[in-house]
Amino acid sequence: GIPATNLSRVAGLEKQLAIELKVKQGAENMIQTYSNGSTKDRKLLLTAQQMLQDSKTKIDIIRMQLRRALQ
């Protein structure tokens, strides 16, 4: 079985993952909103794209940590 310490770690990672998935969803929504907007929305679009990139990276890292914890 999986050690108890790993189980609480997994629960924490799953919570983090859920949050990051919401951030990713929000960033994707912002990108959709701003991509057909005016030029003043360009900065917001770039910010949203950066957020999305960061979020995807975090999600990958969390998933990797989850896999390790579940081994």
Rank of each mutant, 00 (worst) to 15 (best):
L21E: 05
L52R: 02
M30I: 06
G1W: 10
I19M: 11
M64P: 12
L46V: 09
K43L: 12
L44F: 07
S55G: 01
T39W: 06
S38R: 05
P3G: 09
I59K: 00
T5Y: 06
G1V: 12
Q32M: 09
Q32D: 10
Q65D: 05
L45P: 00
T57S: 07
G37D: 11
E20K: 02
L46T: 04
L52E: 01
G26R: 14
V10K: 03
V23T: 07
T33D: 15
N29R: 11
M64E: 14
S8E: 13
E28T: 03
K15H: 08
E28A: 04
I62W: 00
Q16H: 03
L46H: 08
L45T: 02
G12I: 15
M51E: 04
G12R: 15
G12N: 14
L17H: 01
Q53N: 05
N29G: 06
A27C: 13
S8N: 07
T47G: 07
V10S: 02
K58G: 01
K24M: 12
L66F: 01
A4Q: 11
G12Y: 15
S8V: 13
A11F: 04
Y34Q: 04
R68P: 02
R63K: 08
M51R: 05
Q50P: 00
L7G: 09
A11Y: 06
Q53K: 12
N36P: 04
G37R: 03
S38G: 12
R9I: 14
M51S: 03
K22N: 05
M30N: 03
I61P: 00
Q49E: 05
L13W: 03
L17V: 01
I61L: 10
L44M: 12
L52Q: 01
R67H: 09
I19C: 11
D54T: 07
M64L: 12
Q49S: 03
Q25Y: 06
A27F: 13
G26H: 15
G1I: 10
K56P: 00
N36G: 06
P3A: 07
Q32K: 14
K40D: 08
A4G: 10
D41S: 04
L21C: 13
L21Q: 05
M51W: 04
A27H: 07
N6I: 08
Q16W: 06
D41Y: 05
A69M: 10
Y34W: 03
Q71D: 11
K58W: 03
T5A: 11
D54K: 09
I2G: 12
D54L: 06
R9A: 07
Q16I: 07
Q50S: 05
V10Q: 03
M64G: 10
D60W: 14
Q71E: 08
R9T: 13
S35Q: 12
A48N: 01
V23M: 05
N29A: 12
I19A: 11
L45C: 05
I2T: 10
Q16G: 02
I2V: 12
A4K: 13
S55V: 12
M30W: 05
R68N: 12
N29K: 14
K56D: 05
L66R: 01
Q16P: 00
K58N: 05
L45E: 02
A27G: 01
K56F: 04
R67D: 09
G37M: 05
Q65P: 00
K40T: 13
D41V: 03
I19Q: 11
V10L: 07
I19W: 09
S38H: 09
L13M: 04
E20Y: 12
Q71R: 10
S38Q: 09
S38V: 11
T33M: 14
I31C: 05
I61E: 12
A4H: 06
I2L: 08
A11V: 08
S38L: 10
T39Q: 12
T5S: 10
K56Y: 04
D54G: 03
Q49R: 13
Q32Y: 10
M64D: 14
R63P: 00
G1S: 10
L45F: 06
G37Y: 01
R67F: 11
R67Q: 12
I31F: 03
R68G: 07
Q65N: 05
M64Q: 11
I19D: 11
I61A: 10
G37C: 13
A18K: 08
R9P: 05
Q25H: 05
L70R: 08
G12D: 14
N29M: 10
A69C: 07
N29I: 13
I31K: 01
I59Y: 01
I59D: 00
A48K: 00
L70H: 04
Q65K: 08
K40L: 08
Q65R: 05
G1T: 11
A27Q: 02
V10E: 01
S35G: 07
Q50G: 03
S8D: 12
A48C: 03
A11S: 07
Q32I: 12
I2N: 10
G37S: 09
Q53L: 07
R42D: 15
T47C: 15
R42H: 14
Q71I: 13
S35P: 03
Y34R: 03
L44Y: 04
A48S: 02
M51C: 05
A11Q: 09
T57I: 14
N36V: 05
D60Q: 10
L70Y: 09
Q16T: 03
I19F: 08
Q71K: 07
A18G: 04
V10R: 03
N36Y: 07
T33V: 11
D60V: 11
T39K: 09
I59H: 00
E20I: 07
L66W: 01
L44W: 04
R42C: 15
S55F: 01
Q65W: 06
A4P: 08
Y34C: 09
L13V: 00
K43C: 13
Q32G: 03
L44I: 04
Q32F: 11
M64R: 13
S8T: 10
E28S: 02
L17E: 00
A18M: 09
K56W: 04
K24L: 11
M30E: 04
K15E: 08
A48V: 04
L70V: 06
K58I: 05
L13F: 03
L21V: 04
I61Y: 11
I61N: 10
T47M: 15
M51Q: 04
I59L: 04
Q49P: 00
T33C: 15
L17M: 03
L70S: 06
D60Y: 14
M51G: 01
A11H: 08
E20M: 14
L21S: 02
I62Q: 00
Q49C: 15
A4E: 13
T5I: 09
Q16F: 03
L70I: 07
E14L: 15
G12W: 15
R42V: 13
K43H: 12
Q53F: 07
R68A: 14
K15I: 08
Q71N: 09
L70G: 05
M30P: 00
K15T: 05
Q32A: 13
I2R: 08
R42A: 15
V10G: 05
I2Q: 10
R63V: 07
I62G: 00
V10H: 03
E20S: 04
R67T: 10
Q71Y: 06
Y34K: 03
K56T: 12
R9G: 05
R63T: 05
P3I: 06
Q50E: 07
S8M: 08
Q53C: 11
M30Q: 05
L66Y: 01
S8C: 15
I2C: 15
K40W: 05
Q50I: 08
G1N: 11
T5F: 11
S35D: 09
E14W: 15
E14I: 15
I59T: 01
A11G: 04
I62L: 11
L13C: 02
T57P: 01
T57D: 12
E14Y: 15
Y34H: 07
E28I: 11
I59E: 01
M64C: 14
A27P: 00
D54Y: 04
V10P: 01
N36H: 09
